[in-house]
Design a protein around this nucleic acid. Structure first.
Length: 579
RNA sequence: GCACCCGUAGCUCAGCGGAUUAGAGUACUUGGCUUCGAACCAAGGGGUCGCAAGUUCGAAUCUUGCCGGGUGCACCA
């Protein structure tokens, strides 16, 4: 945490604080409250509508209740104190309504805050180790649109955490064992006409993922409709577990398994590459954590954390108001639950994390509660440090739900394709960079948790609240800078057109802080769009190049462009110089 | 049946540890380019914040109950 700034200080525009302007004001307000009322309270500062000021607080209403005083009176007293103690930082302190205190920053302080907006970004996770687990596709299954969403959101969350200074470990967990593998392997064997690994070479390299998808659907359909196939699939599933146990890479069945597993991973890598997400630090296949999960559940069964029920090993979540779930099936096979325990303990053993974030769809929310409740019984630390962040599903505008279970929803590549087609229709010939900006921004701009109705056309549109629009806004600002013969000057004073832009620039660190604290990327999107609007209003009324105030204005334009680039970067979106 | 999430403008969404006049985008109407990228700006119409109670000086926001939608509830993941 930054030190409390000295009580008196001379302001000069080349001073860049390593904390946000908000903290400075907050500390001063806190001291004022202490001085006047001998009460310790950390006041909340909000950004009110511009006509009221740059910051507002309703702390006097809180205090009034505690002190048994009139809120308006308390506000007046505080305001008088602040006019003295913040004379350099604040130009005007007013009391409004029932007792709101509105602060209007001095130009010099605002200048300092705007200039430092990027460098004042929070480093609240400095020295912490944070694991972000996301994407989590299963080998042997096709990537659907939901995977695309969860991958991009996870990437953004990880970027936020890293931005706050955390040592960030990006983990990708996937089911390379389990019934779905049995289904796909069964389908593969049907296609190959038996355990004939040599026939795999007949499948063209660029057809592999599609082919495996078809095999999965074949197996899935057979499992549901054909009793004999179902029995064979269950056997195939057991054989997959067995080959892991035996470390079998040679039997024909094992050769097929390992080859196809590899194909899946290659297919994932291709997609991640296309999406330009930060590469994962570690892939953890289920098979890797299965033994630890199984062993742990068996140990804890002895200690009474788990219990036997109908031949299965279960955790009685109902005692805790949760669901009861099976960890080891009556067949003796670990379920997803046991594997998840292995996964959590593996992360804990290998990284001793301060925080572990798991990003999945909403449908796993109650499931994960059971897992964490179970782990808490014997390993409280990792359980308490784990946060499960869930998101909704992706629907296409017009409304077909994209289902993960049925093999027939739009695939991740279908979404990319839809965006490209919508882009082609605009006639602006968007680059691949812009296509990605469209999709990423469309996914990120909604509050995480709800469903996303994806509209390719709207996402790629160059007007409105879209990724491509912000790329354009950035490029336009850069082009102004290129046009100028001179560099910018230091900020000192603002005129009517400049001030609202400067104020918006100064909000950046607070927005980033909030997005990181709450793990809510959409705050960044909302802010960037509002910033672009503030800029456009400025630009409408203010000539930059050639104006007497050119030096100041060029600096504002540069800060604006830099923040756009920085903010888009947090969203995994590029900011090209021209578009 | 029980549990969790969600109902804000025609559409897509912000706003949610209470507060100054409920906001954006889009669509629609109108005005603005001999000047730095008008992919923009300005103005207008459009909302019983699902419904109903409750708590308070004050509720889109908190509580309860309904109604509507989604998801999850033991050997799938």
């Amino acid at each position: 945490m930054p030190a409390v700034p000295p009580a008196s200080k001379s302001f000069s525009i080349d001073i860049c604080y390593n904390y946000s302007d908000m903290e400075t004001l907050q500390q001063a307000l806190k001291r004022a409250i202490h001085d006047l009322f001998n009460t310790d309270l950390t006041p909340e500062l909000t950004r009110p509508d511009e006509q009221f000021g740059d910051y507002a607080t309703n702390v006097s209403m809180q205090l009034a209740g505690r002190l048994g005083k009139n809120p308006r009176e308390v506000a007046e007293q505080l305001a008088a104190h602040l006019r003295e103690s913040l004379s350099a930082e604040v130009q005007e302190v007013t009391v409004a309504g029932p007792g709101f205190i509105n602060l209007r920053l001095s130009d010099v302080f605002l200048a300092s805050a705007a200039t430092a907006a990027i460098s004042a970004a929070p480093r609240t996770l400095e020295g912490k180790t944070v694991i972000a687990e996301y994407s989590d596709p299963n080998p042997f299954k096709p990537l659907h649109a939901g995977h695309l969403y969860t991958t991009l959101m996870g990437d953004i969350i990880a970027r936020l955490v890293a931005h706050a200074g955390a040592k960030t470990i990006r983990v990708n967990y996937g089911g390379d064992v389990g019934l779905h593998v049995g289904r796909c392997m069964w389908g593969i064997l049907q296609y190959l006409g038996g355990e004939r690994p040599e026939k795999l070479s007949e499948i063209a390299e660029n057809e592999r993922s599609k082919w495996m998808g078809t095999c999965y659907v074949t197996g899935n359909t057979a499992y549901e409709n054909d009793e004999q196939a179902k029995a064979e699939i269950i056997t195939a599933n057991k054989r997959v577990y067995q080959l892991h146990k035996d470390n079998d890479h040679d039997s024909p069945f094992a050769q097929i398994y390992w080859t196809c597993r590899q194909w899946s991973y290659e297919y994932f890598a291709t997609l991640y590459d296309q999406l330009q997400v930060v590469p994962f630090d570690r892939y953890i296949p289920e098979s890797e954590v299965t033994p630890l999960g199984l062993q742990t559940v068996e140990e804890q069964l002895q200690k009474g954390v788990f219990e036997k029920s109908d031949g299965a090993v279960v955790f009685d979540g109902e005692k805790l108001g949760l669901h009861t779930r099976v960890f080891i099936s009556s067949e003796g096979l670990p379920t997803y639950e046991a594997k998840d325990i292995g996964l959590s303990l593996t992360k804990w053993r290998d990284y001793q994390f301060d925080k572990s974030i798991i990003i999945t769809a909403n449908e796993q929310a109650q499931y994960m509660q059971v897992i964490l409740a179970a782990i808490k019984q014997f390993a409280p630390e990792p359980a308490e440090r784990t946060e499960h962040l869930t998101h909704g599903i992706v629907k296409l505008k017009g409304g077909i739900k994209i289902s993960s279970r049925k093999g027939n929803g739009p695939s991740a590549l279908d979404i990319l394709q839809a965006a490209r087609e919508a882009g082609a229709e605009t006639g602006t010939n968007p680059s691949e960079d812009t296509i990605l900006a469209a999709i990423k921004y469309a996914f990120a701009k909604n509050r995480i948790g709800g469903d996303v109705i994806y509209d390719p056309k709207e996402s790629i549109a160059l007007e409105g609240n879209s990724g491509p629009y912000l790329q354009y806004a950035h490029a336009r600002a850069r082009s102004i800078l290129k046009k100028a013969a001179n560099g910018g000057g230091e900020l000192a004073t603002f005129d009517e057109a400049e001030r609202p832009l400067a104020r918006k620039l100064s909000e950046y660190p607070e927005v980033i802080q909030k997005a990181i604290d709450e793990l809510m990327p959409h705050y960044v999107c909302t802010y960037l769009y509002e910033l672009a609007q503030a800029f456009n209003r400025f630009y409408e009324h203010a000539q930059v190049v050639g104006d007497p105030r050119e030096a100041t204005r060029l600096t504002l334009v540069r800060l604006y462009a830099d923040i756009l680039r920085d903010g888009l970067g947090l969203l995994g979106i590029g900011a090209p110089e021209s578009i």
